[in-house]
Write a protein that binds this DNA or RNA. Structure first.
Lengths: 233, 233
DNA sequence: ATTAATAAATGTACCTTTTACACTTAACAA
DNA sequence: TTGTTAAGTGTAAAAGGTACATTTATTAAT
């Protein structure tokens, strides 16, 4: 084992896979940017940046997300660290990917225009630079696992949402159809949804009741070892 | 966004959480080493080392595992990257943890003596340096999740093992008792175990039949979307 | 030869959860 | 008043999970 000083130092980056849900198009979207510097300038990429000596990896990821979206306190979890020698043709860069879930409606549309960021449907992504495509695949797989165990779906929806919208979201994440009655039965027996006295009336004459996620009762259930897994048809 | 060259470089390390299973003591063990350099020389730590410019993270982890154990082609998966600024008091080091599963019997006892490595029971670990305790906790949690979905337990057992031994292993990982008949029913319906014509006779007069993991039928089932989860009492 | 001791091996009934499936209701517009 | 549209609802059958006690094979001791 060598002394610290004898060892080679590396550039470290973070890249953010930023998921959003488009409630109208019923599609998961990713916030992507046009890369502004060489190599690969002008091509689509994840939001990323180098880790500074004054910040942790988590802080770097938060910073990059904030710079792009103006949002703080976003759902953000480490995904995986990519460390192949040649993954970035510009230099050896070790990059830690982070998964972010945001409510599309929270984003200031102007802001993202300025920074050259755009929401792109997961179904038809443009080609991404380097290994960013692999990062997206892994992050999506993690999201699919995560949502079985934790109600992270609510991070992607507005405060008020209908059961139809919630089901559409689950179908988009699983990329599978779900039986309506079974879905409602299961999600309602979890007792983490509050029915509101208000209806969403854009999409039907009858209207659908809004619900709200109750974070407190969720915490209670988690402590009791509650299992949110939703095995879906 | 700055140019590559303007950004600060960091030391990158990998640390290996090496799990083994002691079939006699029915305990999960970790292979730990006495640290040989400052800071924290002489204290217990995970096996780790710096990432070289000529190797990927995965390669660095394999190399460190090989240097310590002499084993190649070991089950090895990335766990998590630890990037707090002050996690290592010697310098800023970003460390990626890897989870390794090895058969204790595969290890050349001499070799580990030379390198100052020792198996320590997970139940009564010594204090570990830096954030290595946290790394262990996370890796164990990952192992507990992993074993529900993939039969990784077989990585920890010798080629031939009895159902009693397999159950003991699951109990050690889950840190929970499991009903014998239900365990056997479930594990046998998975059809990935081959019963051998041979008995283990050390621990009882009657003797227990040896089984062998059939990797081929496992692959077949995985492709069909088989679910190995074993929800246990 | 018989008996005692020990751990391995085995089956079933009950309960819970999951699945499959089609009609009624509310609201508005014509 | 009627037509249209999407929201909302229940039940029966199947599958899977849980709880639980006795028999069997083998060896050592008498």
């Amino acid at each position: 084992m060598k002394l610290y000083s004898e060892n080679r130092r590396h550039l470290n980056a973070v890249d953010c896979i930023i998921f959003g849900y488009d409630i109208l198009e019923k599609e998961i979207k990713l916030l992507l940017i046009k890369r502004s510097f060489e190599p690969a300038r002008g091509l689509w990429s994840l939001a990323g940046g180098f880790v500074k000596e004054t910040e942790s990896l988590d802080e770097a990821a938060s910073r990059i997300l904030f710079q792009l979206t103006g949002l703080m306190d976003v759902y953000l979890e480490q995904s995986y660290t990519y460390g192949s020698i040649d993954r970035d043709p510009g230099a050896r860069v070790i990059s830690t990917a982070y998964r972010a879930l945001i409510k599309i409606t929270d984003i200031d549309r102007e802001l993202s225009q300025v920074s050259g960021a755009h929401w792109q449907s997961l179904e038809r992504l443009p080609h991404l630079i380097f290994d960013h495509g692999v990062m997206v695949e892994r992050a999506l797989a993690e999201l699919q696992i995560q949502i079985k165990v934790k109600p992270v779906g609510f991070e992607l929806l507005p405060e008020k949402f209908t059961l139809v919208q919630l089901q559409d979201l689950y179908e988009a994440i699983y990329q599978k159809d779900i039986d309506k009655r079974n879905f409602r039965k299961k999600i309602l027996t979890m007792n983490v949804l509050e029915k509101l006295d208000e209806k969403e009336k854009e999409t039907s004459r009858k209207g659908a009741f809004y619900y709200r996620f109750n974070r407190e009762s969720y915490e209670t259930y988690i402590k009791q070892g509650f299992d949110f897994s939703l095995d879906v048809n």
